[in-house]
Design a protein around this nucleic acid. Structure first.
Lengths: 149, 149
DNA sequence: CTGTATCCATTAGGATACTG
DNA sequence: CAGTATCCTAATGGATACAG
């Protein structure tokens, strides 16, 4: 089984009281809890899973069908992580064939607003970003042209 | 140079009008713009860089010193991505030794609120998550114990 | 100082086969 | 159905050396 978060937990910044000045001085140390958790919830599939479960509880296969491109392995790994972090609850119904359902915990549900704002920002600004990329690539191509001459 | 985002841009969900019902039906397709952008800004270093630049413009070396554990290569790669996405502006002062400064663009600054809410959530709930992990690991260990007997 | 280029180790993650 | 186990490839990212 793959294990993450096995380094020093070093509960950085936990005792720091953020007033209203410099609200952005969160710890940049590598072993910071905040960093680890961000990495976890911002990974390739977690956001998607949380988003889908926000609406309703889903079975393993339903999740797999909804999320385009996820492998069985990665869906399992992702769900285990989320369960371990207390964001998702896993319920096994003792029937055959087995029926396993996933749903958000109350902790998981508190993430909704936050994730939503991130998704909304991305949706609202994707055109700008696409434009910036095109502009950048054009400039880069021209610079290469000049150099090559 | 490493290049990301080279697949089909497929401007998913851009024409969808989100009312107030089902605000979470964002596209789960792999080639979705939103997914790509989220992956980008949620990567290992981007959040950190944006966070630091929120306060003030910084030179390359200053960033490197502030961000514990980042290699020269990854800082460069990250900064280039952010520049390409129009989130960060790079200014080269033609002096020797060279002096290069990075600052957020207005687009980059609009990300601040969003990122802040994510960081705040993480800070507020890191204790809960740590607790959940411990509980999960304990249960897992006990289960392994039982199986082994 | 601010990079780029190269090499290499680690990890993420897909494909497949098998199990309760 | 809902996984686990194994194998293997691709991508991430660090270390180092070198250049403008």
């Amino acid at each position: 089984m793959e294990e993450g978060t096995s380094k020093s937990p070093s509960n950085c910044a936990s005792t720091v009281d953020y007033g209203d000045a410099d609200p952005f001085q969160w710890d940049t140390r590598e072993d910071c809890q905040v960093r680890q958790i961000l990495d976890r919830i911002a990974d390739k599939w977690s956001l998607l899973v949380i988003a889908l479960l926000e609406n309703r509880r889903l079975r393993f296969t339903e999740l797999r069908r909804e999320i385009d491109g996820v492998s069985q392995r990665m869906l399992t790994v992702t769900l285990r992580s989320l369960e371990r972090d207390g964001l998702v609850k896993r319920t096994v119904h003792p029937v055959v064939p087995p029926r396993v359902e996933y749903e958000l915990t109350s902790l998981g549900r508190t993430l909704h607003t936050t994730i939503q704002s991130l998704v909304t920002w991305t949706e609202e600004h994707q055109a700008e970003i696409a434009h910036a990329r095109t502009a950048y690539d054009t400039r880069a191509a021209e610079a290469a042209e000049t150099t090559a001459s």
